[in-house]
Design a protein around this nucleic acid. Structure first.
Lengths: 157, 157
DNA sequence: GATAATAAGGTCAGTAATGGTCAGGGGTGA
DNA sequence: TCACCCCTGACCATTACTGACCTTATTATC
């Protein structure tokens, strides 16, 4: 059930982003918290767990009077970002949440098919990972996505 | 002889699955335990003994607030090659050669696309594996192929 | 200008709400 | 007796939510 408050807030923001022509929206944290009847810091929780760079979003903000949150959907330029992603983001370590976010994003961008997305998500969430230390888990996730990307990037397919 | 509680829970879930249009249901463990007046862990027992890939089902879950169990029916009949395949590789360990052979076979049988085959081979030959002991390596390979196979057989794809 | 008041948003530790695991007890039939 | 289910409960792991306290920007006042 996708019905936790965090999920609702996430969907609400994504609908707003879809409606915005340029993939950028600005909202006020306190106003959003009012709409969903939650504490303001819950908004930060949602942003921190669902709108990270790995998920394909960037968040900017400003405090004080006239403050705001600006959520930017990063657009994916296949020719440049693909290579960039492969080399830089994925060389690091990925939490499960970030890994799934990245896989989902690659699907949204048409890089992976739905089946491939589900296979990779499944592999990245295998219980086997629990045997490993946290660092190894995150490294392995990164390597798995990297391996998949390396294959998908091949030109002879 | 009275049907055991596990049998009742099993039937209940299978009726729900029949009613669901796409062979997928989501339930809450604690809610189900409440309905049958049993401890929550009994639900895990039922899932672990009756809803495995070898039985033609796959279970995904999420912990924490808003958590759930998702039961997915797989798209193959009992007593077919696929069932035997699952039984074969469950709990087994696969050398790199065996792993690649199995992946190749699944491709030949039309279960995996060419891209999926290459992705899985790439993953199974990652250098990361060298950090692990031989036993872990082989176990991980088996788990990866199981995960991919179970995913690809989902009814809702 | 300098300063105080006001109006945002940020952080983090703690609590609540889920599901997972495992060792063990209790039947039941061969 | 022994093997095999079924069932339980204590303890663990993960995700969601809250509130107290902190930082920064703008605006009003002197």
């Amino acid at each position: 059930m996708m019905s936790s408050m965090s999920n609702k807030i996430e969907m609400y923001l994504k609908v707003m982003l879809d409606r915005a022509s340029n993939g950028v929206i600005e909202v006020q944290r306190s106003e959003l918290a009012d709409i969903f009847d939650c504490v303001p810091s819950q908004i930060n929780y949602v942003l921190g767990t669902r709108f990270t760079p790995a998920h394909g979003y960037k968040v900017e903000s400003r405090r004080g009077g006239g403050g705001f949150l600006r959520i930017i959907r990063l657009n994916f330029e296949p020719d440049t970002d693909f290579q960039h992603l492969f080399e830089e983001i994925i060389g690091e370590e990925l939490s499960q949440n970030q890994g799934e976010g990245l896989i989902e994003r690659l699907f949204q961008e048409g890089v992976l098919t739905k089946r491939e997305k589900l296979i990779l998500k499944q592999i990245c969430s295998m219980s086997f990972f629990n045997r490993l230390g946290l660092e190894d888990q995150e490294f392995l996730r990164a390597k798995i996505i990297q391996a998949a990307l390396a294959t998908v990037m091949r030109e002879d397919l």
